[in-house]
Amino acid sequence: MTADGRRSWRRPPLIADRRLRWLIYGGGLIYLVLALATLEVNWLRAWEGLGRGWAFVQSFLRPDFASRGPDILNGIIESLTMTVTATVAGMLVSVPIGIGAARNLVARPIYLLCRGIVALARALPEVIVAIFFVAMFGFGPFAGFLTLTFNTIGFVAKLLAEAIENVEHAQVEAIRATGASWAQLLNYAIQPQVMPRLIGLGLYRLDINFRESAVIGIVGAGGIGATLETALDRYEYDTAAAILLVIVGIVTLAESVSSHLRRWVQ
């Protein structure tokens, strides 16, 4: 109680011990300052780079779609093909793995195996996987297709498994009580609950895969990324700008279409 007899109240701090609290906050701050100090920024180089950056930006103001038109078109078609095939193939493989990775549906060994596959597919970044497949199957869209498929599995299977683990248990119990088999349980109690989520994931992954196809193309996995890489190598910034604008256009379109579709399936 304070002097005037009123009671005071303050929200209890996250870390109750006052000394520990100061140690953690203070330590974090000191670390941040020291870490920033170790970054060696070459300001002179940065100053020179400004000019080059500006040239890059300026070329966006006059993108050149025409002189490499056919290459851009081919690249886009290749990327779209890669994207669609990889998404479909990835979804087909993801569904059984996702079901296997749901703790509430399968025996423990299967769960661990599928979780392992998911963890592996998620741990490896796209570019590393792409380099690996390019080394294995050579340059071109097949390596890109495999890369995108692999990463789709990690993404969709994990989120599908989570969706399955979070279904309403009462509905599962009710179907189980009718004497349904495991497959019927999946079809009647699980599928209706996770289907909108699965469709949403597929559409979302479709637009992620298109964006990724541009990135992995740079390391040789075909598609629009390869065209972009060529243009940058030749310092054809105006062509590169045209390619980037096309990518931005398609990604924006894909995103708005997929978000509409996702809202519709809910």
Binding site: E168, A170, Q171, E173, A174, A189, P192, Q193, P196
Partner: peptide, 9 residues
Amino acid sequence: FQEFALVER
């Protein structure tokens, strides 16, 4: 069941 437990979709 208490909360009906129908498969809602």
